[in-house]
Design a binder for these strands. Structure first.
Length: 853
RNA sequence: GCGGGCGUGGCGGAAUUGGUAGACGCGCUGGAUUUAGGUUCCAGUGGGCUUUCCCGUGAAGGUUCGAGUCCUUUCGCCCGCACCA
């Protein structure tokens, strides 16, 4: 038992945390120093939606960011670490109706509650930069940016089949539909043909894809997900010529139907031609013919396929012959035109050349409707190959296969291309595309799966789209000097009132001609608000612009961005697009907003289940803060697992964290008792145990610092524990009177400093009370260390014989290979007895491996 | 189907470039302090005939003086996208 325990003040987390919470706020300690000449570091956590109080996921997210921010401050950076709220959104409307209040009131109340919890957790935010997206100061600039995009042709309106969520009563963007269901409420989405507002994100598809390579600090899987979502395909557009009802080709543009294909090499295998049910002009082809009824049936049937069924991928294919034919521009074949419900209308051209021999879907369709299957790519060991390799054999137009052949091989039955290799980017493909281009019937083309971003929402609690519908002038933007279009905060949602029914809102005059006009009553997708908030933080009070170029350039890009994987596509893709678009408007000079991305894992309950209100298994942060304090909460969260991994909540781990803080607290106080002037440390005069502690201090500090840089808090904390253990061992073996005053001062300061980013309250208290320092520990520098100082005079090396561990032996530090080998051979004498050492591999300071015969 | 990731003690997890597997913590066992519980401190804790011997990183091969780490095959689990021509 330690000899001075009675003198050490108890660790009273609640009192300490209350005290420093107030003090930091009064000092405004975490404000950015705008005059600083220090290098900047921008640490950002994804801002929350204020749906109530913070949960464990938030606590984890912000603790990670806060530890990074506090440590960066101590390492000498000018740190921008702001917070705000993604405050618009549908849950506020639903809650307002449920609680008979207003969306604004509910939102503001929740934000206040969340802010109180953030303060209680000790997060070091620059509160002067607080951003709330529902504030007119903020959304004004969202409208301004919208109009700038509009000016540049990046905003447009289009009537199109769109995703409609019947529960949320609004349309959704493609990114907001998962397996046919609404991302927010999980309802099955419906297709509706509506005129809506779009942002032309596809204009940036290629750059969004290419620049993923500029993001080595992003998780590979997130980049992969974005690349898949953008979905670039290289291929060719090929023009087919439609025949009239009598089978005569229709010359000119009238008769041209273009398809996109990645497999131009398979054009000779094309035995039928498909149009999507939504293909424009489809019904004109069959109107008044005997095929009209059959086609109409497929078109109507397709409307009833839900996106959920589609997502299952097991749908039976339906189709109908249109009675028409097209001429294949390469083979010259006349092939029948069908409508098929597996053709997607908004990818490529909505028309497809079917190649049943090599495409599983076309194969299924051909089997079902008894259409010919012409083999055109065969491997050379295929029984058919000999017959078909030189165009001499009998033409084969049907096969007995059970499924399409997707193997590599050579082209057969392909005219002059026969014998070339087939496949994507193959010899055959290149030759055919070259000939198409020469003939003017085709060209190279690239398609993306990425669709334009549908941003209008038929909802109230959002940023109003700043547009006016005038009978005479069409749709015109609200003049910039009239922004923002203010969102009324007094709608009676309980009575079902919407913006479209709010006369005070929508009645206006046309800014061009002055005639009475109607204001647009759709609001913007909330993801538009979150696509640029990180820029507003750099200049939050600007009344002339969303942010100044100087401020943005000073802090951007965000160095460390921390948030959940659920935004891998949505928010992160939209934000990348906004950054690029704003760059092209000359508003800032970076290409990418977030240099390093950390996707933190989820916090599950003790059984590994997701915490949710409906399950009733939510562990609120208060359940830890109240008994143990915020420092324990923070330490437990960071120590239990690496930040990017999911972890199951474990009350025992919380107790362990609390135990460590108390232990560190006690050790620091004990060290402080004998602490003198750390600067007077004389390494030569240190006793053996003191020297050991001294070395351990350099070793653990090096490890800890490196782990902070890697964002590996769990191992950084392990290193801190080792340092505390080393200090404890020193105290246990050396009586107080004999302890080195400089060393104890140094190590006490070390422990407090390295733990400070993680347990800020306890460390700030120790800094003042135990160490007697003036000023905050966060204005003090990070401890200096030298990994070379950790080296002992002697090191233990491993001795292996033929790769098997046989002994461990001490050798002088820096011993050369000969010395190491001699020591090793002596240590394993009995294992090498009677054998010859033919080779010795010596890894300095680590091991010797003896190869014997 | 396509793409990505992961398999290490009773548990969470270490091992940064191939070089002493299991750091650190939880739990457990024993001891000290204590009236007791709690706290704290000390020691131990991968498995195996308990003895300096063998086996051990999902499984099987391979490369290497040496493999948790690299290669091939395979099994199991997780995530993302999905009728994208």
């Amino acid at each position: 038992m330690c000899d001075h325990a009675h003198e050490i003040p108890a660790y009273d987390a609640q009192a300490i945390e209350e005290k420093w919470m107030k003090s930091w706020e009064e000092q405004n300690l975490f404000a950015v120093d705008t005059d600083s000449t220090k290098p900047k570091k921008y640490v950002l956590e994804m801002f929350p939606y204020p749906s109530g109080d913070l949960h464990m996921g938030h606590a984890r997210n912000y603790t990670i960011g806060d530890a990074m921010a506090r440590q960066a401050r101590m390492r000498g950076y000018d740190v921008l670490h702001p917070i705000g709220f993604d405050a618009f959104g549908l849950p506020a409307e639903n809650a307002a109706i449920k609680h008979n209040t207003q969306a604004a009131a509910w939102t503001y109340k929740n934000m206040d509650q969340a802010l109180a919890t953030m303060k209680r957790m000790g997060f070091s935010y620059d509160m002067d930069r607080l951003v709330k997206t529902c504030s007119p100061d903020y959304y004004r600039w969202g409208q301004w940016i919208f109009e700038k995009l509009w000016e540049r042709g990046l905003v447009y309106r289009k009537k199109n089949p769109v995703n409609w969520c019947p529960k949320c009563e609004t349309v959704l963007a493609n990114e907001q539909v998962t397996e046919g269901r609404c991302w927010r409420c999980d309802s099955e989405v419906e297709k509706r043909d509506l005129e809506q507002w779009y942002i032309k994100i596809t204009a940036y598809a290629q750059e969004l894809l290419d620049d993923l390579e500029k993001l080595p600090g992003w998780p590979e899987r997130v980049k992969q997900m974005q690349a898949n979502w953008i979905g670039r395909s290289e291929g060719a557009e090929v023009d087919f010529t439609l025949c009239d009802v009598d089978g005569n080709p229709i010359e000119g543009d009238e008769g041209k139907i273009t398809v996109f294909t990645t497999r131009a090499d398979t054009l000779f295998g094309n035995t039928f031609f498909l149009l999507a049910p939504e293909y424009k002009g489809l019904m004109d082809l069959v109107e008044g013919t005997g095929y009209e009824a059959g086609v109409r049936e497929v078109v109507e049937g397709a409307k009833h396929i839900s996106a959920v069924e589609r997502a299952q991928g097991t749908l039976e294919k339906h189709g109908a012959f249109t009675g028409r034919y097209v001429i294949n521009p390469v083979s010259g074949a006349k092939v029948p035109v069908w409508v098929a419900d597996y053709v997607i209308s908004d990818y490529g051209t909505g028309a497809v050349m079917a190649v049943p021999c090599g495409d599983a879907r076309d194969f299924d369709f051909a089997r079902k409707y008894d259409l010919p299957i012409v083999p055109i790519i065969l491997s050379e060991d295929d029984p058919l190959y000999e017959d078909l390799k030189d165009e001499q054999g009998t033409r084969v137009t049907s096969v007995d296969w059970d499924e399409a052949l997707t193997c590599e091989g050579k082209l057969v039955q392909s005219g002059k291309y026969t014998g070339m290799t087939g496949g994507k980017h193959s010899e055959g493909e290149a030759a055919i595309v070259a000939d198409l281009e020469a003939a003017g019937t085709g060209k190279r083309s690239v398609q993306y799966r990425l669709r334009d971003w549908l941003i209008s929402r038929q909802r109230y609690w959002g940023n109003p789209i700043p547009a006016i519908h005038c009978e005479h002038c069409g749709i015109v933007p609200v003049p910039a000097d009239q922004l923002p279009v203010m969102l009324p905060e007094n709608l009676d949602l309980t009575a079902g009132e919407t913006l479209a029914e709010c006369r005070d809102f929508y009645e206006t005059t046309c800014p061009v001609c002055g005639a009475p006009a109607r204001r647009e009553t759709d609001t913007m997708d909330t993801f538009t608000c979150s696509s640029w908030y990180y820029l507003r933080y750099t200049d939050p009070h600007n009344t002339e612009l969303p942010f100044s170029r100087e401020a943005a350039n000073r802090f951007m890009p965000v160095d460390n961005y921390i948030g959940g994987i659920e935004h891998a596509i949505l928010h992160l893709l939209y934000s990348r697009f906004f950054t690029k678009a704003l760059r092209d408007m000359g508003l800032l000079d970076v290409d990418e907003p977030f240099t390093n991305l950390l996707c933190q894992g989820m916090v599950k309950d003790e059984n590994g289940d997701t915490m949710s209100k409906s399950r009733g298994n939510v562990v609120p942060p208060s359940s830890v803060i109240e008994p143990f304090g915020a420092d324990t909460m923070r330490l437990a969260i960071l120590f239990i697992a690496p930040p990017e991994k999911d972890f199951d909540w474990d009350p025992k781990a919380v107790e362990g964290a609390n135990r460590f803080i108390k232990r560190a607290w006690r050790i620091v106080w004990q060290l402080a008792e004998t602490a003198g002037d750390a600067a007077s440390l004389d390494k030569v005069a240190l006793s053996k145990p003191a020297l050991e502690l001294y070395r351990e201090r350099h070793r653990t500090l090096a490890k800890c610092t490196e782990d902070f840089d890697r964002g590996q808090f769990n191992t950084a904390i392990s290193a801190m524990m080792e340092l505390v253990n080393a200090a404890s061992a020193y105290i246990n073996v050396v009586p107080a009177a004999e302890r080195d005053a400089a060393l104890t001062a140094l190590v006490a300061c070390d422990i407090v400093s390295v733990l400070a980013p993680i347990c800020p309250f306890a460390c700030e208290e120790l800094w003042h009370a135990a160490l007697g320092r003036e000023g905050s520990v966060y204005t003090a520098p990070w401890p200096e260390f030298d990994a070379a100082e950790a080296a002992a005079d002697e090191v233990e090396i491993a001795v292996q014989v033929l790769g098997k561990m046989r002994a461990r032996v001490m050798v002088p530090a820096g011993a050369d290979a000969a010395v190491m080998q001699a020591a090793a051979e002596a240590a394993v004498a009995k294992h090498i007895e009677g054998k010859t050492v033919v080779k010795a591999i010596c890894v300095p300071g680590k091991l010797v491996n003896l190869v014997v015969k």
